[in-house]
Simulated scan of single mutants.
Amino acid sequence: MATIRDVAKLAGVSVATVSRVLNQNGYVNKETEKRVKQAIEQLNYKPNEVARTLFKKTSRTIGLIVPDISNPFFPELVRAVEDVMNIYDYTVILCNSDEKGEKEKEYIDILKQRYVDGIILTTNQLTIGEVSKIDVPVVVLDRPLDHSLPSVIANNYEGARMATRHLYDIGCRRIAHIQGPLHVVNAVERFNGYRDEMKELGLWDEQLVFLGDYNLKLAKEVTLHALQTLSIDGIFAGNDVMAVGALKAAQQLDLDVPNDVAIIGYDNIPLSEMTTPELSTVSQPIYQMGAMAARLLVKKIEGQSIEQSQHKLPVQLIQRKSTMRE
């Protein structure tokens, strides 16, 4: 394997000159630069990226921290970030925090040691004070943190009101809500939208709210309990994974969905079309969100001006068979 010294010898220049050509740092006349590049190509020389990173304090790498990659919502988000970053010749390091603040802090320390050029956060375990100390460009995705940080989110509040109103419009009057984790901002926003719509409809009853924690198994368990102890004819689940759990519970009790109990989820992950019946849902522009966050981060890394740093994207209600009553 060729070394930088081999390139210097073949080109008839010093190692320092080859280094300046590789790093585009310092003046090298065009003829010398041409000889160095010809020598690099002839020897098929590959620079030591670790050494270059240490020298330049940059790596053309970004970190992407997600709370739970097993949640079907996040793979599409990750794919969008990776697709855009690849266009700009950045590599993505994926970190799974498991909704644990300490693990998130450890990942950030590791990413900084690797001289990542920026970080995209899709969790909200850290305070704004902790994030401000990261000392590399940060963009917040899916879960808002603070207006001082560029962010890309969906309109969770309006989406929740939309879902609740849809259940009312098809005849539901006892509408339960399976809520996501209490510490997750988008779960709280969806709960707030559900609560406010129920109050406006004159149907608000706090006994109809159950914690599902964005978990299929837990959502199934709380739905089984709710359907057996309360009169419920509609369920708005805070994400599609919990909606699947609710659907399984209804089917276990031999209830007809949607005629006995109608169910709607949130996110529009592929799984929502694979159930029987197919799940109605509130669709987030998942890929668009990830792509937009990636472009924002590139602009921050490259020092470009950002005309708009806060983005709240619209959502869309998609009706499928789980809310199509006869």
Rank of each mutant, 00 (worst) to 15 (best):
M1A: 09
V7Y: 13
V7S: 02
L10W: 06
V15Q: 12
T17S: 11
V21Q: 04
G26C: 07
Y27K: 15
E31V: 15
K34H: 06
Q42P: 02
L43N: 05
N48M: 11
V50T: 11
T53Y: 05
T53D: 02
K57D: 00
R60V: 00
I62H: 03
V81C: 11
E82T: 07
E82Y: 08
E82M: 11
D83V: 07
D89N: 13
Y90Q: 01
Y90L: 05
V92Y: 06
N96F: 06
K105E: 03
E106V: 13
Y107W: 12
Y107S: 05
Q113L: 14
D117N: 14
I120R: 08
L126T: 00
I134L: 13
H147F: 10
S148D: 00
S148H: 05
A154Q: 00
A160Y: 02
H177D: 00
V185M: 15
F191I: 00
K199E: 06
L201R: 04
D205S: 09
N215C: 15
K217L: 10
T223M: 09
G234D: 02
A237G: 08
A243F: 05
K248I: 04
K248D: 05
D256Y: 02
I263Q: 02
N268W: 07
E273S: 12
T275L: 12
Q284Y: 08
Q288L: 14
S309D: 01
Q310S: 12
Q316L: 13
L317D: 01
I318H: 13
M324A: 12
